[in-house]
Structure formats: structure tokens, C-alpha cells
Amino acid sequence: MNFKQLLHFTSHAVGIILRGMLDDGTSGMWAIKRSSGICIVQDPNQAEYPDMPLSVINNMDVDYVSELHLRHLSPDCRTTTQECRIGH
């Protein structure tokens, strides 16, 4: 599911940027933030590809910057928009 498909969830949406190149995740995070959703970004110093996390951080106020890695996300969060838990 991409960011545009999440827009109908409005305030229930949580955007998580783990890594990436370019800045295409920034527009989706803007949409989530405008709808009172939560924006979480991986610490660019911990990201394999820091361009996208840096773009989001440099262009908007995010709710959390964390040392997240894909292994920290519950399996549900990797494949669906259902319950998503973050832990170490």
C-alpha cells in the first residue's frame, strides 16, 4: 500500500520512513501529517539509504526520529495496515 492509498484512513494513518533514495516519501508524509496522522522516520545516521529520511526531516516536523530497522517492526506492519507494533 502506498501513501496515496492511505489517505482515506486520515488521522489513523502512521507513516514510517525507514530508508530510501530521492524525496518521494516526503509528499506522502505531508499528507499523513495534514490529516493528523503520525510520522515516524528512521534516524538518517542509521539508514542504509538516508536520502528519504533526510528529505522528510528537512521539510516537515516529524513526530519521532528513531533508530528503527525493519526487524523492529511486527510482521503485520511489514505487509498490512492492520495493527503495527514497534519494539526492539
Rank of each mutant, 00 (worst) to 15 (best):
H12P: 09
I86K: 04
H69C: 14
S66M: 14
R34V: 07
Q46F: 12
N58D: 02
I86M: 06
T81F: 13
R19D: 14
R85C: 13
I40Q: 05
V41R: 00
S55M: 07
V41M: 01
C39A: 13
R78C: 10
V62N: 15
K4P: 06
D61Y: 04
L54N: 10
H8N: 08
P75K: 08
G25K: 00
S35L: 12
D61P: 05
P50L: 01
S55W: 00
R19F: 13
S74G: 05
M1R: 11
P53W: 00
N45C: 04
D24M: 01
L73F: 06
D24P: 02
Q46L: 14
R85F: 12
H8P: 06
K33D: 09
I32H: 00
H69P: 06
F3G: 03
S74F: 14
D23G: 11
Y49S: 08
F3P: 06
L68G: 09
L68W: 01
D51T: 07
C84V: 03
V65N: 10
Y49C: 03
P50N: 02
F3D: 02
T26F: 03
R71A: 11
H72T: 04
P53K: 00
M1P: 04
N58I: 00
P53D: 01
M1I: 13
H88N: 13
I57A: 02
T79G: 10
T79D: 10
I16L: 15
K4T: 13
S11C: 04
I86P: 12
P50Q: 00
C39V: 05
I86A: 11
T81W: 07
I32Q: 01
F9N: 08
E67F: 13
E83A: 08
D23I: 10
L6V: 03
D24C: 09
M1K: 13
N2P: 06
G87T: 04
I17N: 02
E48F: 12
C39L: 06
H8G: 03
V41S: 00
K33Q: 06
M52T: 11
W30E: 09
N59S: 09
G20Y: 03
A13Q: 03
L22D: 09
K4E: 14
Q5C: 13
H8F: 11
A31I: 03
M29E: 02
M52E: 15
L70E: 14
V56G: 08
M52V: 05
D63N: 05
I16W: 05
A47I: 01
